[in-house]
Each structure stands twice: as structure tokens, then as C-alpha cells.
Design a protein around this nucleic acid. Structure first.
Lengths: 223, 223
DNA sequence: GCAAATTAATGATTTATTCAAG
DNA sequence: CTTGAATAAATCATTAATTTGC
């Protein structure tokens, strides 16, 4: 089954690593242009499309947050449940990783174009940062499947927004782990969402996921 | 300034009319190809992009629903407030004209593909229905092929969901639109959101929008 | 009558949920 | 169970309506 009609993208370890690295470096919601570049970059390691990159970041961000929340919730519930009885309950305890292979080794080679100069040339134009969804597919002749490859055709869209890139360049460097790939200096906005809690809106707020009712997410890990 | 720096699309009356007509005809979440067509069509009346169409449907759908919800909520609250007094309160009143027929008028000028047959034929293959957002920029040859055209795929219906207010699903359908436009049976998922209760397997849960607490949505004066 | 100040709509983004493949 | 994919809900931001003061 060479032509796995796989309906969904299956990231290669390299791609995954790079993506994770980027994520750790601070990339959270790349815009169209950035996604294009990332995609082009990762395409070197295997089939991949822009939407995959997009979704990956979307999901990764969401799940990272969800995980945190869950843990906090669990903690709270435990506390609430256990009440004042056993204070120092080790939060996470068992790792119990299912089967995720062990990372560690995985030495890739970054010798593709891109490397240091991630951003070829800043787009002077720009206007819409990350744009919509669906509507895009259309034109993409997209033959049938495994066809993608060259996506670099920023033509009409040309997203790359410089406006938002205001920069800040806030340090960012956390534990990039060696300068593997440094994201383009043109990251998204100064910094937007990275909070642990959605404390942004004017009054909004905080959905009670931990509540006793719903419990769909925070309920015990049995699932 | 000659170049209207309008950052956002401002639909012309014609465009708006057509969009609304489509909406009423049942179009809810057009996929990429459909959006392309709609866009091409509407472009005749003024500047417009695929994303605008996408967003329009997205927003229109959401707000239509929100409006309904709000009404129901308000009604419920009223009921709750008024307490038990008038038992047989007709859920939705509405004369709901039995005539399903929708005007279908609107023939405007149609001088390009599209015309009456909105949806050509369903695409057997179909890869990504409505896909992601941002990443799009890529290829998207605005005018290039027609080989794929066709797509189809619309959405299923979703009249009034009641998910939040948990109303007892009474007939209803106040001023919604009737069915019309027969969309190609090329939907994707069997069913998405239409159940009265999120009886998901995981245990879902009922968000309380109408509840007294959060009240972010249903509350009257938000700001 | 017009123009700044408010408010109401609604276009555009982001976040949270949900579905289902692997 | 993990996670790619997709959708809906929530939010933000800008434009059009209105209102208000001169």
C-alpha cells in the first residue's frame, strides 16, 4: 500500500521535532506566510501541507493549555475532595505514557535552505494576518494527493504581515536547545496569548471546566 | 484617499442580498470550491475575496443562532420570572408558513458560470472539505483550472439548535428559511451538531449560557 | 446643518469543542 | 488513548448608524 490513502497527515519524527522546537521557541499562531515557510521547510522531511502546520499549532497550543488546565483542575478537585486532610498529594504521579516512543535521539540534519535565514524577504505589503479557512482550497489544483510539494507561491495573498511583527523580539530564547532552527525574526504579534488563563476579555471569562457537572474534560483520567 | 484603506470588506447591497438568499436557500458552510464560486459570482458586484464569503457565512450562521438562542433565553427567563402563570405557552408561535417554497427569485443577471445550477456535481474524491485558515496563501491559482471545480458538499441542516437552552425542541422555526436548494449528498460527516443534548460518549455537558451565572451571552447589556 | 462622541452591527481572529483516524 | 481535522463559540476591532452639542 504505497499510496496510503491516508486521509490525514502523519508527521515524521523530524517534522514533529521541528514543530515542537518552534513551539517551544514561541511560535504559537503563525500566519499565512509563516506557515508557508514552515511548510516548505518541513516538506523536506516528508509530505506536508500548510493546513497540517496550521492545525498542528492550533492543536498543540490548545492541548498544551488543556493539559495544564486539566492538571490544575484535578488538583483542585483533589484538594476539594480530600479537603484538608492530605495536603501534599503529589500531583501528577505516574507518567504512564502509553506508547509514545522515546524521543531523545533523533538527530536530524538541518541542511536545508532555510536554516539561518528563515525569512527570505519581508513582505512590504500585507494586511490580513492569519486568514480564513475553508475558502482557500479552491484553486489549489491539487491533483489528487501526494502532489503538494511546492507551495511557495505567495501570489495574491501574500500574507506576511509586517505590521504585526512589531517586534519586540522579546527574548524568546528559552530552552531552544541549541539553536537548532531559529524562527524568523518576524514572529507574530508582540505576544498575545500565552497566558494560563483566558483572562483577556472584558468580562468574560473562564468557563468552568472544572465544575462538577460537565466533567467531560476534567473528570478522572479513566476515561 | 483614492485607495480606500478600508481594512475590512464592506459588502454591497447586491452582494449582501445574494448571500442572504443563499443562506436562506440552505447554504451554511460552503467549502473551498463553493466559496470560490460564490466569490467569483459576487465579485461582479464589487470587490470581494473568498475569506469574506467564508466569514460572512460563518458569522451569519453564528449570529442567527445566537439571536434565536437569545430569544429563547429571554423567553425562558421571562417565564421563569413570570413564574408559573400561563401553562400552555406556545413555544414559538410563529405562523411557520407551511409553504416550503422559497422565492428563489433573485435571478439577477447571472452572466457567468454558476447560474442556476449552483452545485454541479459532488466530488467523489474530496479531500479537505472546509479547511483551515491561515496557511492558505499558497497556490490558489485564482484563475486557472476548472478541472476540479465541482465540489459540493454543503452542510447539513441545523435549524435551531437549542443546545444551550435545552428547550424542548418544539417545532419552532420562526423566521428561519425553508429548505430549498438541494445540496449534493456529498456531505462529510453523518451528522454534526443537531442533537438536543450533547449526549456524546465522553460525557459531554451542557454549557450554561442561559444560566444566571456567566451570562456573558444571554445577558442583556453586555457592555 | 454639521462634526465629535456613543452605540449598534458585523467583519475578522482566536479559542474551545468535537469528531474520528490510527 | 493520542492527535489530526473541522466546526462552533467567543472575542476583538472597525465601520455604519444615532445621538448630542454647537
Amino acid at each position: 500500500m504505497p499510496q496510503t490513502p491516508s486521509t490525514r497527515w502523519c508527521p515524521t519524527p523530524e517534522q514533529l521535532m521541528i514543530l515542537e522546537e518552534m513551539y517551544r521557541s514561541g511560535v504559537r499562531t503563525p500566519n499565512a506566510a509563516e506557515i508557508q515557510q514552515i511548510t516548505a521547510h518541513l516538506a523536506y522531511y516528508g509530505r506536508i501541507e500548510g493546513k497540517n502546520v496550521f492545525y498542528w499549532f492550533q492543536n498543540h497550543k490548545a492541548r498544551e493549555r488543556q493539559r495544564l488546565r486539566r492538571r490544575l483542575c484535578a488538583r483542585h478537585q483533589q484538594q476539594a475532595a480530600a479537603a484538608a486532610a492530605s495536603p501534599p498529594i503529589p500531583p501528577v504521579a505516574g507518567g504512564s505514557s502509553a506508547g509514545v516512543v522515546h524521543p531523545a535521539v533523533m538527530q536530524l540534519h538541518h541542511h536545508h535552505p532555510y536554516a539561518t535565514s528563515f525569512m527570505p524577504h519581508p513582505h512590504p505589503n500585507l494586511q490580513a494576518t492569519t486568514f480564513p479557512p475553508v475558502y482557500a482550497a479552491a484553486g489549489a489544483g491539487a491533483g489528487e494527493n501526494e502532489k503538494q510539494a511546492t507551495v511557495g507561491g505567495v501570489e495574491e495573498w501574500d500574507a506576511a504581515d509586517t505590521t504585526s511583527c512589531g517586534a519586540t523580539a522579546s527574548g524568546g530564547s528559552s530552552d531552544e536547545g541549541g539553536a537548532a532552527l531559529q524562527l524568523p525574526p518576524c514572529c507574530r504579534r508582540p505576544l498575545k496569548t500565552l497566558d494560563l488563563f483566558p483572562t483577556k476579555s472584558t468580562g468574560g471569562g473562564l468557563k468552568d471546566e472544572c465544575s462538577s457537572s460537565k466533567s467531560s474534560s476534567c473528570s478522572t483520567s479513566t476515561n
